Amino acid sequence: MSKKNPLLKKKFDEGYQAGFLTGTKNGYEQGKYSATMYFASRFEGLQDVKGIGPKTMEIIVNHFGAEYFKKVNE
């Protein structure tokens, strides 16, 4: 068995670490996007659910923040 070149091993480890960090960051961003889209889909039509009136909708909007909701004129 031959001795491995330490410079090649070092460069391999650096590349592996950089790829791992990039993959982790991309996975985090994808997870955040998926969670956001899930919550957005669950909020669609919330005002049409029986038992949720204007007061409840106002409480929900105030809790999460008005910037996450858009007002639609019916």
Rank of each mutant, 00 (worst) to 15 (best):
E14A: 10
V61L: 05
K4C: 07
Y28I: 15
F20M: 11
K32M: 10
K3I: 14
K4H: 03
N5R: 04
I60Q: 01
K55Q: 05
K70F: 04
F43G: 03
I60H: 00
G19M: 07
K9F: 02
F69N: 08
K4W: 00
K3F: 08
Y33L: 15
G51K: 06
F39A: 15
E29S: 08
F69H: 06
T22S: 09
K55L: 05
V61Q: 07
Q30I: 11
K55R: 07
Y68F: 13
G31P: 01
F64K: 03
E44S: 13
Y68N: 10
G45P: 01
F20R: 09
S41E: 09
T36S: 09
K70W: 00
Q47Y: 11
Y16T: 12
T24C: 07
G45F: 06
T22M: 07
V61E: 05
E14F: 03
K10V: 08
E67N: 07
N5M: 05
M57Y: 02
S2Y: 02
Q17D: 09
T22H: 01
G51T: 09
T22D: 06
G51R: 07
K10P: 00
G27L: 08
L7G: 03
G53R: 01
Q17K: 14
P54W: 00
F20Y: 10
I60A: 03
L7S: 10
K4A: 15
T36E: 05
E74L: 15
R42E: 13
G27P: 00
G53W: 01
S2M: 07
V49D: 00
N73T: 15
S2Q: 06
D13W: 00
K32I: 13
Q17I: 14
Y16F: 15
I59N: 06
N62G: 12
K25R: 10
A18S: 11
I52R: 04
Y38R: 13
E29H: 06
N73H: 03
T22A: 15
G65E: 01
N62D: 12
I59L: 11
M1G: 12
S34L: 14
L8S: 10
Y38K: 12
G53H: 00
F12L: 15
N26W: 00
I52K: 02
T22V: 10
L21E: 14
A18R: 11
D13K: 14
G15K: 08
Q47L: 08
D48A: 13
E44K: 13
G15Q: 09
I59A: 11
G15T: 06
I59T: 12
E44R: 13
K9V: 15
N26E: 14
L8K: 14
L7T: 14
E58G: 12
Q47F: 08
G23A: 14
V61Y: 01
G31D: 04
K70S: 13
K4F: 12
G45Y: 02
K10M: 14
K32A: 13
I52Y: 03
N5K: 04
I52W: 02
K3R: 10
F20H: 06
P6H: 02
K50Y: 06
Y68G: 05
F39S: 11
Q30F: 04
K55F: 04
D13L: 15
F64T: 02
E14Q: 09
D48R: 08
T22Y: 02
Q47G: 02
D13Q: 14
T22Q: 09
